[in-house]
């Protein structure tokens, strides 16, 4: 009985709440605002977010991606990666190949593998890896997304890599303007017989979900290069994406407020109550627009 009274007090215009649902009172709206801000602080600290950088897709600088990657490596005590012109050229070729052949994957529709681009530029490797990202508006978000995915994180923090090359390629994928970031890692081979391969997940992973699909572990020595290129099945650990968390918290709150408004409109009409209040149609329009935006909102993707 108490629960029903409480729900009525919160959701239904009634004498107990001065004919305005309690959730739409000044104090309740203030609490909701504070909770939303608090949730963002928690997410930011929880995800180790180091501040947002605003920018345009075309402003992504390859040197910043490299700097950020080396920063992450420093934080865990791994040696710095050295910039490689050759790897950057391979990264550029890979990005352009994706645009030209309209695919978003580590392996091309014709079976072209990431390692083929290493070979095309004459980079003979002992270890090699590839991270891909698209549609991020700034390098910080892309690097954070990679860091949130265990397989990509492993690539970024692996002490087996000595060199890095990055390319930012713009074009159209499936008719949508896209900015692709290709990040290649490598260690030049000293002994040609040893060719282990490390790849980021070959299954598409959205940064909205941050669900890693693979986490390749390279063998120390492999006699046969083809054997080394076989994907290795690894356990996956789902992580919470700050983007998804923000989106679902917002959707939850805005849906509750919309329900309150709909009940309010029905009850006020039914009972013929007159009271000073904001226009319900206006509030509902605003909240429904928010719901639509929250549903369609998308972040960049990593694979």
């Amino acid at each position: 009985m108490k629960t029903i009274k409480l729900l009525r007090h919160l959701f239904v215009p009634h004498a107990s709440n001065n004919y305005t649902p309690r959730l739409f009172h000044f104090q309740s709206l203030l609490i909701i605002t504070t909770v939303l801000i608090g949730a963002q602080f928690l997410l930011r600290f929880g995800a180790g977010y180091s501040g947002s950088v605003l920018g345009y897709a075309s402003n992504i600088s390859t040197s910043e991606v490299i700097t950020l990657t080396n920063q992450k490596r420093s934080e865990v005590g791994v040696g710095q990666l050295v910039y490689s012109d050759v790897l950057s050229e391979a990264a550029r070729l890979k990005g352009e190949n994706m645009i030209a052949n309209n695919y978003w994957s580590h392996v091309g529709p014709d079976g072209t593998e990431p390692w083929d681009f290493f070979a095309n530029v004459g980079y003979s490797y002992r270890y090699a890896g590839e991270n891909l990202a698209r549609d991020f508006s700034n390098p910080v978000s892309a690097v954070n997304a990679w860091m949130a995915s265990p397989s990509h994180r492993d690539n970024m923090l692996s002490d087996k890599y000595k060199e890095i090359g990055v390319a930012v390629v713009e074009g159209t994928l499936d008719g949508v303007d896209t900015t692709i970031i290709v990040q290649l890692f490598g260690t030049p081979s000293e002994a040609p017989a040893v060719v282990p391969v490390v790849a980021a997940a070959q299954e598409q992973t959205s940064s909205e979900d941050f669900i890693p699909s693979a986490n390749a572990q390279e063998p120390d020595t492999v006699d046969d290069q083809t054997e080394a290129r076989k994907p290795i099945e690894i356990n996956t650990t789902p992580l919470v994406s700050p983007f998804s968390a923000s989106k679902y918290i917002a959707l939850f709150v805005v849906s509750i407020l919309s329900i309150v408004l709909v009940i309010d409109v029905i009850e006020i009409e039914r009972r013929g109550i007159t009271r000073p209040a904001g226009r319900r149609f206006a509030h509902l329009s605003f909240l429904i627009t928010l719901i639509i935006i929250l549903i369609i909102a998308r972040a960049g993707e990593i694979i």
Binding site: T33, A39, Q40, S141, S246, A250, V253, L290, A299
Partner: peptide
């Protein structure tokens, strides 16, 4: 505004 910014900042 908070909802929109919270989503935009994480995009």
């Amino acid at each position: 505004l908070i909802m929109l910014l919270s989503v935009v900042f994480w995009m």
